[in-house]
Amino acid sequence: MGLTTSGKLRVRPSRIHLPFHHQSQAHFPTRKQRKKDWDEDITKQNLHMWLRWLEDLKSLRNFKVPRCYRHGGLGCAISLQLHYFCDASQVAYAVATYLRTGDNEGNAGFSFFCGKARLAPLKQLTVPRLELCAAVLATRADQTVKRKIGVPLEESVFWTDSMIVVKYIANLEKRFHTFIANRISAIHEVTEKAQWRHVRSRWNPADDATRGIHVEDMLKECRWIGGPSFLSRPEEYWPREPEIRHELENDP
């Protein structure tokens, strides 16, 4: 991971197939969730879905991702910034990361950098709590990338489509139960609340990983790889922060 002699950043994309892999998790519950033994036969319906998924898997050989993260149309790069998009569902929580490059003429471009995800625990949690887990996962991904990338970076930006998480992170006084408090503390240790922003679900590419998408959609211009188009625009055109009109009264 690092700069080539031509000044172009090249890294190996990580977890690029997450949305497709998690699509299988949405359809095939674990053995414990089904409350069946490991050697019991699966239903015909599940067998059909499994064979279909295996057949679709072959199509991923046609899936391609550019390995150069600096766009050819940009001038001299003067800034590099990582953007993390978080999301969660009852199946999984995930983070999609993009590297935004700004040049000396005020232009910007961005590319998919890496993805990270975890399956939701067997003990069911509320979606707001899983969204908070996704936020923690994003901060850990940020620490890992910063250690390995080997180039100067501007302050990272974190995006979530959960207003509850935004309120959690913005709160510096209210006391929460242990589960919430520990994760808020982990986020505050490595980020400032000003680094966190709200994004609508339709612009959140991490949504693809938590809900899963079909292989046909992976082979198209999917938002998981393409990312949100507003990142190529100046910051004043990014989604604006919604007004927080009331404080959290309890732990969701």
Rank of each mutant, 00 (worst) to 15 (best):
N204A: 02
L248Y: 06
R183G: 07
W238N: 03
L172H: 14
E192I: 12
D161P: 11
Q45V: 14
K167M: 15
V145E: 06
Q33L: 13
I244F: 08
L57W: 08
I16H: 11
S59V: 01
Q45W: 12
E249R: 10
H198W: 12
M218F: 01
A141D: 14
D103I: 09
C222P: 05
D37H: 14
A120W: 02
T210E: 01
S156T: 11
C86D: 00
G7L: 05
K123V: 12
W50R: 03
P242L: 03
V151E: 09
I78R: 06
H71R: 05
P228N: 02
N107E: 09
F20P: 06
E40W: 12
C76Q: 12
F179N: 03
L122W: 04
D251I: 03
H27L: 15
D208C: 14
R245P: 04
P66W: 00
K35P: 08
A94I: 07
L231A: 01
L60Y: 03
D161E: 10
H17W: 12
T97Y: 03
D103Q: 05
I244W: 07
V165K: 00
V95A: 02
L130V: 04
G212H: 07
E241L: 04
A120T: 11
L132S: 00
T160K: 04
L153F: 09
S232K: 11
Y69L: 15
L231W: 05
F85Q: 01
F110R: 01
T30N: 06
R70E: 13
E236H: 15
D103F: 04
V215I: 11
R175Y: 13
I244E: 11
Q23E: 11
K35C: 12
P29H: 02
S201M: 01
L137E: 05
K220H: 02
R211T: 11
G212D: 05
I213M: 07
E155R: 13
G2V: 09
L132H: 01
F230H: 02
M163E: 13
D161Q: 04
T126E: 01
W238H: 12
R129P: 09
H71L: 04
A170G: 15
K148R: 12
W224T: 06
W38V: 13
V157M: 14
A26H: 11
S89Y: 03
E155A: 13
R10E: 15
N182E: 08
D142G: 05
S162G: 10
T97C: 14
P19S: 04
L130S: 00
K193P: 14
V91S: 02
L219W: 05
P19L: 03
P19E: 00
L57G: 04
Y168A: 07
E192A: 13
L9H: 07
V165R: 02
E249Q: 08
P128F: 00
H17G: 07
L248R: 07
K58W: 05
V136N: 03
R118Y: 02
G227I: 01
K64R: 13
H22C: 08
F158S: 06
H71V: 02
R31Q: 12
P13K: 09
V11R: 09
F158D: 04
L99D: 04
P19N: 00
I180K: 07
